[in-house]
């Protein structure tokens, strides 16, 4: 085991040139992954809730299956998941390194995570609210859209905030497989090459990003609650 000693390396004036592209790569990764997560995890969450006994179309078998899928994706630590699915990643995107390769395991971890957050948010909507829709002759789709999603929106936004922050964390871990981004920069330039300046700059930026996202998310949730 080698002991790394951090020392100041890159001069501060050179930091932006390294930091900005890395930030851009992180943002790209998290952005693409979040789009996939919302597109697939959202409906999965709606399905899990509505096939449960309290849902609009209770169905024990379907619920068991979708629930199992959602649990499966969340049962492995991200690093283990990433390693396990390397053949699958290779199959889907044709490479096992870089941003493209990171998107697959990040999505696989993010989709079930968001599905559960979504399910919880909808579960918080009082069941009497669904009765309002049923009693006024709404279709199931209308109830999902106009009642479940509308009433659960603050919870969904809180879930999204949590999810984005988790994906930033995963993107940093994915940096270890050369995915690029802030995590990669911190590990590769900062840690491996004893570059304290880069390390500090990366950490400071990550802290700032997470704080800004949490703050913005909280503000959004508050403005959605009436």
């Amino acid at each position: 085991m080698t002991t790394h000693v951090l020392a100041l390396g890159t001069p501060w004036s050179g930091v932006p040139a390294l930091l900005f592209p890395a930030f851009g790569q992180s943002a790209e990764m998290v952005g693409i992954v979040m789009a996939i997560v919302i597109l697939l995890g959202g409906p999965l969450g709606v399905l899990i809730f509505n096939t449960s006994p309290r849902g609009l179309a209770p169905h024990a078998q379907v619920n068991a299956v979708v629930s199992w899928i959602a649990n499966l994706g969340r049962s492995l630590p991200f690093l283990v998941l990433m390693a396990t699915i390397i053949p699958f990643t290779q199959l889907v995107v044709g490479t096992t390194i870089g941003i493209k390769a990171a998107i697959i395991p990040m999505s696989l971890a993010g989709i079930p995570f968001f599905a559960r957050l979504m399910e919880n948010a909808i579960r918080e909507v009082p069941p009497e609210m669904l009765d309002v829709g049923v009693a006024s002759g709404a279709s199931r789709w209308q109830i999902i859209r106009s009642i479940q999603l509308t009433e659960a929106l603050p919870g969904i936004v809180a879930g999204l905030t949590l999810n984005i922050i988790a994906m930033i964390e995963y993107s940093a871990i994915a940096g270890a497989i050369g995915a690029g981004g802030l995590g990669y920069l911190a590990i590769n330039d900062g840690y491996e090459q004893f570059d304290g300046t880069i390390m500090i700059a990366c950490i400071a930026l990550l802290i700032l990003i997470v704080q800004v996202i949490q703050f913005t998310g909280d503000r959004a949730v508050r403005s959605l609650l009436h």
Partner: peptide, 26 residues
């Protein structure tokens, strides 16, 4: 069949007018 629920069951995120509009939107 119009239904008036105990404690009204209004959707919290909709205004009074939007709540009344809901069955019409359906």
């Amino acid at each position: 069949i119009g239904t008036v629920f105990q404690s009204a069951n209004l959707l919290r995120r909709l205004t009074a007018a939007q709540n009344v509009a809901l069955p019409l939107e359906f």
